[in-house]
Nucleic acid binder design. Structure first.
Lengths: 198, 198, 198, 198
DNA sequence: TATGAATGAGTGTTCATTCAT
DNA sequence: AATGAATGAACACTCATTCAT
C-alpha cells in the first residue's frame, strides 16, 4: 500500500548489512554535498562519488534524484518531527508552543545549511506532493492553537510556522549556534503575535 | 575599478531608445518565465524567446545568466528599496517601522511568486556576493531600531527582516491578496518581539 | 494544428540555408548509422558524430530520438508513399496492383538494410501512434481490392502487404538487386492468393 | 571444438533436477517478459526477478544475454522444428508443403507476440551467426521443392519461407487465433507462386 | 547591432555483467 | 550452488554560451 508514487519511494529495502551501510553512506554523502556545494552542486554523480559508491549503486536504492532528496528530507526531519509531535502533545498549550519552538530552533542550528536547503527543496511541487500531509507541522501547530481557543487557528498556525522558519533559517545562515537564545527571540515574536492579535 | 565583478554587471548601458526597450523586454520576459515555470524553467533561451529577442541579443546586454538574474533582482527591488528607504526616514521610529512593514507586504503580494523565487536566488553565493551591501534593507532596519534606542539593533534588525520575509513569502505562496491584513499580522509579531525582548 | 504530439514533430523549421543542410546531414547520418551498425548502434551521439554535428545541434532539430526516427521514416517513405498512391490510383485494378508491387520492390531494394530496420521501428508503439494512419499503405491496397470486387478486402489487403513486405525484406537481406525479378515473383504469390481464394 | 562461440552456448549442462528446473524457469520467465514488455523491457534483471531467481543464478546458466536469447529461441523452435522436419519428410511433396505451412501457422499463433519478437532477434547478426545453419527451415523447404522438381529450389524456398513468415507474423500481430484459416490463405499464396512461376 | 545556428560539458538514468559472501 | 550488492560504460537529453553571418 504505497502512500506515494513508487518512483519516489526507496527502491529496495536493504537486506544485508552491507546494503544498510551503503544506503546510509549515500544519504550522508547527499547531506555533505548539499552542505558543501549547495543545490547547484547537488547531483547524483557527485553524491555517489562522495559516498565512495558507483552511480549504479545509488540508483539501486533510490530510483530517482527526487527519491534521494525525499529520503534525505525524511531522514533529517525524522527526529525533529517526532520531537515536535511530542511537544505539541503537551497538556498545557503554552508549554507545547514554547517547547515546539525550542525543538525547531535546536533542529535548525544542528546542520543549518542542510536544513535551509532542504526547506527549499521541500517547496518543489514534486517533493511536496510526495510528503505525507497528515503529519505535517502545520497540523501540529494548528492543534496547539485550537487548544488555545483561537478561532483563526489555521491562519495563525501558518503565520507562526513562517515566523519560526524565517527566523531559524536566517539565524542558521548567519552562523548562530545557541538554540536557547534563538528560541527566546522567537518566543517573543510568537507570543506578541498571539497577544496583540486579540 | 568596478565594485562588483564585471561578469555580473550589465554588459553595456543602453544608449539608444531601442536598446532600452530591448533590455526592458528581456527583464520582463525573465520575470514572466520565472512566474510561469519556476526556477526549473528559467533558462536564457526561454527568456529570449519570450522577449521576442534572439539569444544573441540577450547576451549582448547580459553577459551571463547570473547577470540577468541580478538585473531582474535589482529591477524588482528598485521601487521597493526606495519606498522602504523613505519609510525608514520617517521621523517617528514607530511610524517608520509600521510603514516599512506595510511597504514590504505590498511589494511581496504584488507578484508573489516572482518575489519568492527571487528571494531564493538572492541566497545563492554568487548573487549574494554581487549585491550591493551598503544599501541593503538591513541597514535601513538597523537605523530604525537604533533610533528606538535598542542596543541589540543589529541582531534585532536581522530577526525582524526574517520575520517579515518569512511571513510575506508564506502569505504570497498561499495566495493571499490583501496587504493590509498581512501587514497587520506582521506588526503584531514585530511589536511583540520588540516589547517582550526588553 | 499539430496532428501528432509535439515531442515527435520536428523541433524547428530550418530558416537559413545552413540549417536545412544540417537537418539533411543528420537524417542521412541516421540512415548511414542504421545501415552500418543496425538498431544496436543507432544512438543519437553516433548520428551526430557521423553528421559532423554536435549532439546539441541534433537536438535543436529533433526533440527526441523517436522524432529523429520518425523523420527518417517519413523521408525514406516519402517518395515510396507517393508512388504507391499513384499506382493505387490507376484505373485498372490489376495494373494498379502490379504497379504497386513493382514500386514496393524497387523501394525496398534501394537501401535494403535501411528499409528493413525502419520497418522494424515502424512496429514500435510510439512510432506507430505518430504515423498518419489515413495515408497508410493498407488503405491503398484495400482500395485496389475493393475495386477488384472482393468482399474480404480488409483481410486480403493485410495479407498481401504481409506477402510483399515479407518477400522484399528477405530479398533485400539476401542482397538481391533486381527489382523486376523480385516483383515478378511477388506477383505470382499475390495473384495466386487472389485467384485461389475464390 | 564447439560449433559456435562458447559465449553463446549454455554455460553448463544442468546435471541435477533442481538445475534443470531453474533453467526452465528462467527461459519461461524470459518468454513472459518478452511477451509482456517487449524488447524494450527484456533485460536480464527483469528475467531473473520474474523467474524468482537471482541475477547471479541466471548468469551461472547463461553466460550472456545473447546466450539466453539464443536458448529461448531454440526452446521455442524446438517442437516446431521437429514438426516441420516431419512434415517435410512426407512422401508426397504437396502434402509435405501443406503440412509444413499448417505447422508453421499453428506455431506462430500459439504465442504470437513471443514468436514475432524472437523472429526479430533472430535477425540480429550475433544471434544469426550462432544459429545452426544445417538444420534451418530453408533446408527443409528446399528439400520439398527439389522433390517437386523445381530447378530454382533455393530461391523459391527462400521466397516461400518469407511468405509464410510474413503472413504468420502479421496475423499474430493482428490477434488472429485460427491457424486453419491462416494456413488456408498461405496455401493460396504459396501454390499460386509455384504454379504461376512455371 | 541582431540573429540563431552551433557547441559540448554536464546530468539523470539504465542495464549487462562481475564477484565477494 | 546461489545470492544480490556493486560496477561503470553508455545513452538520451539540456542549456549556458559563442560566433559567423
Amino acid at each position: 500500500m504505497p502512500a506515494r508514487p513508487a518512483v519516489l519511494s526507496i527502491r529496495k529495502a536493504p537486506r544485508q548489512r552491507r546494503s544498510a551501510h551503503t544506503v546510509e553512506a549515500i544519504l550522508e554523502a547527499a547531506a555533505l554535498v548539499l552542505e558543501a556545494d549547495g543545490l547547484e552542486g547537488f547531483n547524483t554523480n557527485a553524491v555517489a562519488r562522495r559516498a565512495g559508491a558507483s552511480i549504479g549503486t545509488l540508483y539501486q536504492y533510490f530510483p530517482s534524484k527526487d527519491a534521494l532528496t525525499l529520503a534525505l528530507l525524511q531522514r533529517e526531519e525524522g527526529a525533529y518531527r517526532e520531537a515536535a509531535a511530542a511537544a505539541a502533545a503537551l497538556p498545557d498549550w503554552r508549554e507545547a508552543l514554547v517547547t515546539f519552538i525550542h525543538v525547531s530552533a535546536r533542529q535548525q542550528l544542528e546542520r543549518p545549511n542542510l536544513a535551509r536547503l532542504l526547506d527549499q527543496e521541500e517547496g518543489r511541487p514534486d517533493i511536496r506532493a510526495a510528503l505525507d500531509k497528515g503529519h505535517s507541522f502545520i497540523v501540529l501547530m494548528d492543534g496547539i492553537l485550537e487548544r488555545a481557543g483561537r478561532s483563526d487557528s489555521k491562519l495563525a498556525a501558518a503565520d507562526l510556522l513562517a515566523i519560526i522558519r524565517g527566523m531559524t533559517d536566517a539565524a542558521g545562515e548567519r552562523g548562530e549556534r545557541d538554540p536557547d537564545n534563538l528560541a527566546h527571540r522567537i518566543n517573543a515574536a510568537v507570543l506578541g503575535y498571539l497577544n496583540l492579535l486579540i
